[in-house]
């Protein structure tokens, strides 16, 4: 089985403070993976990095073939713009029509997608007049139209009622059945246990990653709670380094590695050792999808 996504020593963050660090692993083609973790665990950041919207501080993300579709958290969309549901869903055609080609021949596909999410008859409605659940259904219709091999969902059920959630989960399972790779950041553990075969428990680093039942243990969850939300203005430079993917060009970095004797669990190092030299940012560009 080939990998749809591969993370190699991936560190992501804002202003050098890591939101996710030293993530290693692969997502197989056709996998249905839930990404869970407390607020601030780096779930959204990881998804944004996969689509290329957040640069990798260190490490790299490898992507397999096939298009990628991404459902951001809905509040990043300007819903006051006077756009109809049909036009919103038609955005998903971009990879095939680009800026100029006609969408006329694909009307049937658009109508079918809108029907599938249960919004038949709403084609002409402006997106600002939809309820939260209806709007999320419209965004799922756009995902259907995108017809992507890898689908990323960022908290798709936040503020959505039970019936809509059930409908949308059915849609996700259908994508899974069609062999698409689906990653979803979620908070509802019961939902994850019921529908998602594999889970990544994230708390700024991978706490556990594997079969859902083995990941969502009380021990893992409480450890995740402790690890998250540790933004420290005065945090020392992280010296953990797996020795791969970096070109060490000076002696000082070696010194930093030497200080790592305490092991990975205690992720703090003596400030004095690091005083006077900053950590290098290795800007490995993520392997971006062409086009």
């Amino acid at each position: 089985m080939s990998a749809a996504l591969a993370f190699r020593h991936l560190t992501l963050g804002y202003d050098r403070h890591p939101a996710v660090h030293h993530l290693d692993g692969t997502v197989d083609r056709g996998e249905l993976l839930a990404i869970v973790g407390p607020n601030g665990a780096g779930k959204s950041t990881l998804l944004k990095a996969i689509v290329g919207d957040v640069p990798c501080l260190e490490g790299a993300i490898g992507r397999g073939d096939g298009a990628l579709a991404y459902l951001p958290q809905a509040d990043e969309i300007d819903r006051t713009f006077p756009l109809s549901v049909l036009d919103l869903v038609a955005m998903g055609l971009w990879s095939r029509t680009g800026p100029w080609r006609s969408q006329g021949s694909r009307r049937a596909a658009l109508a079918a997608a809108i029907e599938t999410v249960g919004l038949g008859g709403f084609e002409g409605r402006l997106i600002g007049t939809l309820s939260g659940g209806q709007f999320q259904r419209a965004l799922f219709a756009r995902l259907i139209v995108q017809d992507a091999a890898v689908i990323l969902l960022d908290e798709p059920f936040r503020g959505i009622d039970a019936r809509t959630t059930d409908d949308l989960i059915r849609l996700i399972l259908r994508w899974h059945g069609e062999g698409r790779t689906v990653l979803a950041a979620l908070h509802d553990m019961a939902q994850v246990r019921a529908h998602f075969p594999r889970t990544l428990l994230l708390a700024r680093e991978a706490v556990a990653w594997g079969a859902t039942a083995a990941v969502l243990t009380p021990a893992n969850l409480s450890r995740a709670g402790r690890l998250s939300e540790a933004w420290d203005e005065t945090a020392a430079v992280c010296g953990r380094d797996d020795g791969h993917g970096h070109a060490h060009d000076d002696a000082q970095d070696t010194e930093a590695q030497g200080a790592e004797a305490q092991g990975a669990e205690a992720h703090r190092h003596d400030d004095r050792i690091h005083a006077g030299h900053g950590h290098h940012h290795h800007d490995h560009a993520p392997a971006r999808k062409a086009g």
Binding site: Y70, I77, L83
Partner: peptide, 21 residues
């Protein structure tokens, strides 16, 4: 006329446009 479609997308959902183009 040439940029109408991407311009609308950039207004409504710039993040989406960034992910596809």
């Amino acid at each position: 006329a040439a940029i109408f479609r991407p311009l609308v997308m950039e207004c409504v959902d710039p993040l989406f446009l960034r992910t596809v183009s």
